[in-house]
Simulated scan of single mutants.
Amino acid sequence: MAPVVRACMPLPTPPAAVASSSAAPSTDAQRRSPGARVLVLGGTGRVGGSTATALSKLRPDLSILIAGRNRLDVDLVVHAAGPFQRENECTVLQAAIATKTAYIDICDDTDYSWRAKGFHEQAKACGVPAITTAGIYPGVSNGFFYYTAGSGGAGPTILTTSFLLLAEDVIAYNKGEEIKLKPYSGALSIDFGKGARKKDVYLLNLPEVKSAYKVLGVPTVSARFGTAPFFWNWGMQAFANFLPVEFLRDKNKVLKLVKFVDPFVRAIDGIAGERVSMRVSNYFFLFTCAFKSTSSIQAI
């Protein structure tokens, strides 16, 4: 069944105060009822489009609505309209809580993800299931060692995200102590196994590091990213070392840079292919994740 595509009304400005917990939340039966409406924000993009397609195959009974960056009354909002870097407000999440709409996003930014987690009590009080940082690139799937050939099939958004991250100090933890490191430094050669084999990866400020330390109690943790062909890594290092930080922090300027670079990446992808690999090398983290996965998530 193909996704149902309809026009969407503009996103309303979220109210200053979230509705009180006295209002009855939707029941599980209501949330899982046949014909439930799911809105995929950013559904016209590569990741959002793939999300909509996967949902339509997994649950053919769902009515899936696709929009660029708008919303309307639905049962679930999937926020895939990245990049999330340099976003100062969690507007979609706030609107979802205010309207008692289940929410999930594919955020891959540390600041945004922790800002979103600040709405935990509001979401819980309103009975709104809300999950942040759940996409292929963020969350556990960043794997602490992460490698992608070219764009990895994720479209220009991954380029924008990567360039914006070059303006951020890398937050890592060493024996319980927070440390700041230079982005795209600290190269390691990591074996990703059959298919990808050994690849060089470099430090980036990724959200799972802070979560692993603060939530799971992992004392030493960092995350690294690498791409292929190898000269793309040289380009990333050059951007990190020679472009002004003010330039890399300006989303509009970075978007223009991506518009220039993206055709070259696409051309190389056609020759080198696209591949995504992840590796987690902390056994305590693996054990903890396996344990934690038995618990249901009711809020952020």
Rank of each mutant, 00 (worst) to 15 (best):
T53V: 05
Q85Y: 03
A290C: 15
H79A: 10
I190H: 04
D105G: 05
A54N: 08
I171T: 14
S50H: 11
A167G: 07
T91M: 01
L93K: 01
A19D: 05
T220S: 15
Y283G: 00
Q85N: 02
Y147M: 09
Q298V: 06
R31P: 07
T133D: 13
R224H: 13
L165S: 10
P263Y: 05
V128E: 01
N241P: 00
K256D: 15
A149H: 02
S33V: 08
P83V: 01
V40I: 11
P263T: 09
A17L: 12
T51C: 15
N233Q: 14
F260I: 11
K124M: 03
V18D: 04
A299K: 08
T51R: 03
E178Y: 10
K175W: 00
G68A: 11
C126G: 05
D28P: 14
G235Q: 00
Y202S: 06
R86E: 14
F239I: 15
G217E: 12
P129Y: 09
I131E: 00
I268T: 12
I297E: 09
L93R: 03
Y112L: 06
G135W: 07
V215Q: 06
K100L: 09
T132S: 09
S151D: 14
T288E: 09
G150T: 05
N174E: 12
A125E: 08
G82I: 10
V254Q: 04
E168W: 01
N241I: 07
E168K: 06
V170E: 03
L76E: 05
V254H: 04
P60D: 10
N252I: 01
G127Q: 11
N174A: 09
Q122P: 02
G153Y: 03
K292R: 10
T27R: 12
A149I: 04
N233D: 07
A299L: 03
V128S: 05
E168C: 00
T51F: 06
A23N: 07
A238S: 10
I300Y: 08
F242S: 13
L39M: 15
S151G: 13
L93F: 01
D262W: 15
P129I: 12
L58I: 08
A272E: 09
H120C: 08
K210A: 12
G195V: 04
S293Q: 05
F284G: 08
G152N: 03
Y146R: 14
E178P: 06
A272D: 06
A95Y: 04
R115S: 06
S189F: 02
S211V: 12
S277N: 05
W114Y: 14
K182D: 13
N241Q: 11
A19K: 10
G118V: 09
I268G: 02
T133W: 00
S185K: 04
P156A: 06
V5D: 14
L257P: 08
A187K: 15
D109T: 03
I104S: 07
S222M: 05
V47G: 03
E178D: 07
D111P: 06
V215A: 14
A54G: 02
A228F: 02
W234P: 02
N142L: 06
G48S: 05
L159H: 04
L41Q: 14
W234K: 15
K210F: 01
A7V: 10
